[in-house]
Amino acid sequence: MTKRYAMAVDTRRCVGCNACVIACKTENALPEGGFRDWVVQEVHGTFPDLSMQIRSERCNHCADTPCVAACPTGASHVGEGGVVLVNRSKCTGCKACMASCPYGARYVTPQGFVDKCTFCLHRVERGKGPACVETCPTRSLTFGDLADPASPVAQLVARRSHAVLQPEAGTRPHVFFLT
């Protein structure tokens, strides 16, 4: 059974505190200004009839990856469990992948290669969860193997109503926002 890593983000629990963002920055030693995840607050309505959705967003590790397709060197590739990675030693910084990502999930590091969320594969390989998942004080983030029906993430996606970002882009995202 081949793994398929995915993440569920519980927008009912998330308070938008940014702990996931800071944890990611320190875990992955991101450069100043570099973000692999970020928080979006979307407010609808007029006072006092308001609703707000808070989302912790990151690369969706899409099943259909325009970013990988657009990469001329193979630097952008699909790694273990469908995780979309950039091999910086192949990256020319041509930014075709960025131009093709509908989610703005990638950025250019000061050294000139493109960086993005790795699902903390280096931690996952050591049996740990991603840094953002582990620090989240509200336990809003659930990471795991979607291919394993018993995994918490598969259970959540099966049980809870959810949405993905810009389904119309046809990228088949694997970050699911529970509503």
Partner: peptide, 20 residues
Amino acid sequence: KVTGNPAHPLSRGMLCPRGA
């Protein structure tokens, strides 16, 4: 990096952004 101590009753392994 600074992460939460799972053994600690107040953090239970999780940190707020400031702590992180």
